[in-house]
Every structure is written in C-alpha cells, then in structure tokens.
C-alpha cells in the first residue's frame, strides 16, 4: 500500500462507501415474522397432513402401511381393521411423532394415493413432548397455532 493511500485511509473509506450504498431502504430484506407471515414455497415440507376426500369426507388413506415402512425413523404407526362388508382394510388410528421427524419426505413419496402430505405449515411447537405426537384427528385438521397479536 502506498504511503498516500495509507495516510488518507483509502481502504477504510472504500469499505464505508459499500456500507453507505447499502443503507438505502430498497435494500431492506428483513422479514418481520411473526407480525408478517413469511411466504414458504409450494413444495415446502412442513407439518404432515392426512388428506380427506372432499366429496364424502372420508379419509384417502388405504392403510397400506407403506409410509411407516419407508420412514427411516419409524415414527409412523398405522393400525387398520378389515371391514367385513366391503372386505377392505379401513384405517383406525394413525400416529405421527413430529418430534422425531426430520421432514425428509420419504413417507410422502411412498404413499400410493397421496393421502399423506407434508404441507406448508411450519409452526409445530408445543408445550409438552406428548403434544408433538399427532393422532389421526390432528393430522386431518392440521395444526392450529395461536395467532400473534402485536
């Protein structure tokens, strides 16, 4: 570095000029969560949901157990009962332990009828460990986080 540059602190002012350029309000990037909802992508892998058929309100799940087999953490438990009239398996309970889930999406990929889906909800916190284990009802209705009020 030449002496003149050193004396006049050129490197310092050069850096300050960069910071100054970035002061302009159009460079603001901070998201004001939770006051402002962040936009998550369409493919976001968040809270699980067990889809129901909108026409008759029945679950889409055929209790094939493939999701439970695909899961690396084996955190899904599916139980079913054979319906004597239709000779088909029917879902009785479905538990999903979100506290151990790593949202890898393997269960969703394995489901043959798109019944299990990872959705855009991302607020999964709960006050207890037990609250992290979701049953069938919770999975069908989705999480209900308390909205933030300023």
């Amino acid at each position: 570095m030449s002496l003149l540059k050193k004396v006049f602190l050129v490197d310092l002012f050069q850096g300050l000029w960069v910071t100054f350029r970035n002061q302009h309000p159009k460079h603001l990037v901070t998201e004001q969560y939770p006051a402002e909802r962040p936009m998550v992508a369409e493919r976001y892998r968040g809270a699980p949901r067990l889809n129901i058929n909108p026409e008759n309100g029945e679950t889409l799940c055929i209790a094939c157990n493939l999701c439970a087999l695909a899961c690396p953490e084996t955190l899904i438990v599916v139980t079913s009962e054979r319906n004597e009239q239709t000779k088909r398996k029917e879902l009785t309970t479905f538990t999903y332990d979100t506290s151990r889930c790593m949202f890898c999406g393997l269960c969703e990929d394995a489901c043959p009828v798109d019944a299990l889906e990872l959705t855009q909800d991302f607020e999964l916190a709960s006050y207890t460990r037990e609250g992290q284990i979701w049953d069938r009802q919770m999975l069908e209705e989705g999480p209900r986080p308390t909205p933030y009020k300023c």
Partner: peptide, 20 residues
Amino acid sequence: EKYCGARLTTHAFRVGGLQY
C-alpha cells in the same frame, strides 16, 4: 426451498437421479 421443499437439510437427490 422452491426446488425440493427444504432449505438446509435438503434431501434433494435420490439414488438414480432426482425426485423432483
């Protein structure tokens, strides 16, 4: 996030190619 739905631990590729 837009491509595979996760930001950090992406699990973006599968053996044999891509999932998405």
